[in-house]
Amino acid sequence: MKTTLIFLVIFCTSIANAQTLEVGLRVQKTQEMYWENGVSAQFSFAKFKPEQFFLGLDYVTSRLGTAYQSNAIKQDSYLLSGSWLFNKNKPYHIVTRFNMGYFYSDLEEDMFAAIPNTSFLVSPEVGLKYNFKKMPISLNLGVGFYIITAKEGYSPGTLQPLYYHLDLYYSILKTRKK
């Protein structure tokens, strides 16, 4: 809850200075592990590399994926990201992104309290983004890799490194350049 509030404060402060604000849905699959879906938002600043540098906030959870109505582990990932878009004047862009965040898996029972279930997240990503010309919609396809440095047996088991995601963004704010 505390983590969610911190993320919301950062989000609200940042959009006040936003040139572009995109919000959308994320569908994510981890290699040999869960579907984790959620929401994604990103914005660029009018005074710093508009349309090229984006700050983003993402939340994905297995509660909206594999763990929905199943016995899979319920887990949440909160991410803060910085993205750099290449080909900024074209409808399609190569995207490089760096994420930092926090992972939590709910093991539910007291007897499992000693099992590692949280982790800080760091992951580089590459992807492709396509902006539809006549609609305020864009698609972003990315592949990322969580850098997990914990000793084997000391990090959450269902946190695995390689993941793919597809984001569908809707631009709710796009300030014209002056």
């Binding site: 016995n71 582990i73 029972e109 499992f112 099992i115 047996g153 959450p156 088991g157 269902t158």
Partner: peptide
């Protein structure tokens, strides 16, 4: 299950318990 199993994650036994 070993609490810090370096090969088979202890989460395996959580999944077995749940499922």
């Amino acid at each position: 299950h070993s609490l810090h199993d370096p090969v088979a994650s202890t989460t395996s036994s959580v999944l077995i318990y749940k499922g």
